[in-house]
Design a protein around this nucleic acid. Sequence first.
DNA 1: CCGAATCCGTGGGGATACTG
DNA 2: CAGTATCCCCACGGATTCGG
Lengths: 123, 123
Amino acid sequence: MSTFEKELKNVKSCSSEFILAVNDTLNVLNGKWKLPIIGTLLFGKKRFREMERCIPNITARMLSKELKELELNGMVKRTVYDTIPVCIEYELTKSGKSLTLVLDSMAVWGLRHRKIAMTSEKA
Amino acid sequence: MSTFEKELKNVKSCSSEFILAVNDTLNVLNGKWKLPIIGTLLFGKKRFREMERCIPNITARMLSKELKELELNGMVKRTVYDTIPVCIEYELTKSGKSLTLVLDSMAVWGLRHRKIAMTSEKA
DNA sequence: CCGAATCCGTGGGGATACTG
DNA sequence: CAGTATCCCCACGGATTCGG
């Protein structure tokens, strides 16, 4: 029995804890911009402006706010370089990178479900 | 290479599609109540009142609205029995049940991350 | 018992302008 | 370049009431 399976068994033994744990994950991803932000950082460090250009329609205000939240949640690491003008880089932490496992399963489910919905086999 | 891995490779080849697919999944789960509702239905069919009692603090209005959305999304099946008074049962569809794979990975990540956050090893 | 309809408050998020 | 400050709108969700 893998570590993953053991953890899972422990979680499912109490459904409310299960819900809480899933909610924790949902909260990290919630809002309109968290996902695109994490998405762009999956390919490596980026600067603020760079991210603003990468993510369609995001405003500086939103980018700033979301990055701050992600930093508080320990998903993103912010590094300031004392150049002139200052250069600030954002990158995913270990926790942030580990989200890819979750994101992958969500992506696969999303695609499968879209196919099912399109062929209207809804049951 | 498994079916899962093949699908995943296809998704990741285009990052915007990856984001879209994840967003689809997020949208199915979004809002305050979707998750608790799916959670209670994981253990089998339930009637409206039953669910209302199972889910702390939910109002009938919210339960009704969320169930309707979940039905539209093809996650929940609604069955009306012509008894007096009418008896209506809700259950997860195949798509709904298949969400458990995603939910499981989210739960495990949530727990791991909570542990990390508590020992304040945020990087 | 199972909802639908209505009213309403809160806050997430957009637009714009400004600072160090 | 890397953000803040301010204003404003509207969708989410709560409370309550009514109907089949």
